[in-house]
Design a protein around this nucleic acid. Structure first.
Lengths: 343, 343
DNA sequence: TTGTACGCGTTATCAC
DNA sequence: GTGATAACGCGTACAA
């Protein structure tokens, strides 16, 4: 059984290939009867058009790719859902492209752009450390969602949608301070982090400074080498080690909700009560924060609005050839049961 | 700036296109000097080969696709990791294809098969309710991982790797019975479920029967229409409603870990203690089960071994043209802190 | 309304 | 070692 192509269908129906093509692609100028006959034989022969051939021929396909780095990141799931439905509502094709942890998402996008003749791209995660030259190779408009490019990249080259991580970390830490916490440990990203990890640490420092609390290097809990800082495991390991080594703190500000769950578990395993003995605050506002026991006090990123805005910007870029925009969203401090006021 | 193609490179280097092709694809018969020159201009011009054209020409590309249905399912993340690394270790290409919730994963696979000239497919989730005719259209060997096809589909048409859901549900429920629980409610899948939901319910019934406990329809908690039975929200809503309506039970057997977290939260919100007031047992054994407070008693699927086995079978099929196999794995009952013995 | 012929960018098969 | 050239399967001018 050979692969059945458009020619086979044409031969079987005794028509030309272009007529078959017209039938497939819902072109207007075609006799309804011939169309029906063609569609019937297509179904009968289980003919499936070859996408490679189609893409090769096409100059522009109305499809948008979402490059997602780190499929396991629960924070992305909500956004992907929003993106997917928005894109489909606009009658565009949707292609979710997974990029492996150490993969180069821009390179992957470059390939995909040529392969699928994309008309727009949304990046979810990753995307730092690319040269301007590489970025300039992208021919289609693109939006960085929840991430950002290096500072040196000219802002007019791309769009972005995110929160102000410095400010939101500040919001949480100053909240903790306002409740009377003075010894606040932070489960941080890698020491050489240049992305959100760095910014959230900065927000932490700013808040302490504003409350007149001296910065203490010993309260910054860095991951062991090779460990994903945002993982539950890292939250568990660092907090456990900190306590076991006699670290003193009344609250933990954790770089992500996931890591915060790890932190909670570590405390729980050591017989500590949350929030009685220690307060724990997360960052991101994923679903699980609500469902955890105790529910997690966290910074909730408005991912629904962020996803919608990313799409809006992208469509402006595509259809109205608008300008690149950079939108900063305000996050929300959600009070759970994992933080208490110090008497 | 036009798209740069292989012809442009050839022209710039004053060689034929085939020589450029040889350089790109590491063919042996090529002068190292010309190769270097070509590679240099490729880098200089930022030339990226068009994958559509490549796939169109190729007859077989050593790439394996993983069709994943439900990107948010945390249970899949672990398996994907295993699959990815195993496939790359074998020097095969890896393509993760996301299939939307209501999408037809077999149809998507059929398209991808033609487009990318796949040599193997692994299905993660979904895959029920397909006709034998559709299945037969798949030309490449494939393995159903953690799911299964309808009973009517001849076993020699495909391979599968999974657990025995009836038996594992039985394992958990009889464990609960052995601890003295007699009123065990089950957070179940849809009433018309024909997949794992049905089987886990069967295991539940079998266990009760063996312990001489009559089956009580009122203890089966079905999701409201349209709700994902395996979601945290469903676990929360159904258990909350059950308790509020005066439902009597000492333990909950929940269809998935995720739903179990929802169940725990509902109980917690109503001032109940776990496991003091109610025992809760999950199913799957995702990471979070360990990190939840209390840690969740659950059936842990050996997803690492399952992923490895799926790949092994697939490679046998591809390279040794072996026979289709169906492997059933034994799961493990992991005792957490969410279940207690009744006095 | 329909059919023919060309080209999309690549790789493989030949000659040279 | 290298360069033409014929496919791969499809869409689309263009002609009919």
């Amino acid at each position: 059984m050979e692969t059945v192509t458009i020619k086979d269908i044409a031969r079987k129906c005794k028509v030309g290939v272009s007529t078959v093509s017209r039938a497939i692609n819902n072109h207007p100028d075609i006799n309804p009867e011939t169309k029906k006959k063609i569609m019937d034989t297509i179904a009968e022969c289980n003919y499936i058009p070859n996408n490679s051939a189609r893409n090769l021929k096409r100059n522009e396909s109305k499809t948008i790719a979402v490059m997602i780095k780190g499929i396991a990141n629960p924070f992305f799931h909500g956004i992907v859902k929003v993106l997917e439905s928005s894109i489909e509502k606009k009658k565009y094709g949707f292609h979710l492209q997974h990029v492996e942890e150490e993969g180069d998402e821009v390179k992957a996008a470059l390939e995909l752009e040529k392969e699928k003749k994309l008309c727009g791209i949304i990046f979810l995660g990753g995307a730092l450390g690319h040269s301007e030259e590489t970025i300039r190779q992208l021919r289609t408009p693109f939006v960085m969602c929840t991430t950002s490019l290096n500072e040196e990249i000219p802002k007019e080259l791309y769009s972005s949608v995110k929160i102000n991580d410095v400010q939101e970390a500040y919001r949480m830490v100053s909240y903790l301070c306002s409740l009377g916490h003075k010894k606040i440990a932070m489960v941080a990203a890698r020491e050489d982090d240049q992305a959100v990890g760095k910014m959230r640490l900065q927000g932490y420092r700013n808040a302490l400074a504003d409350y007149g609390i001296p910065f203490n290097r010993d309260l910054i809990l860095y991951p062991v080498k090779g460990e994903d800082p945002y993982s539950m495991k890292n939250g568990y390991d660092t907090v456990r080690k900190f306590i076991e080594c006699g670290g003193q703190a009344t609250a933990f500000f954790v770089i992500s909700d996931n890591a915060a769950f790890g932190a909670c578990k570590a405390l729980w395993d050591m017989g500590k009560k949350i929030p009685d003995d220690y307060s724990v605050a997360g960052f991101d506002g994923i679903d699980m924060a609500k469902y955890y026991c105790p529910s997690l006090t966290t910074i909730k990123q408005p991912f629904e609005e962020m996803g919608k805005e990313a799409i809006d910007i992208l469509f402006d870029l595509i259809e109205e050839s608008g300008e690149n925009r950079h939108k900063i969203f305000e996050a929300e401090l959600v009070e759970g049961q994992s933080v208490r006021a110090l008497v």
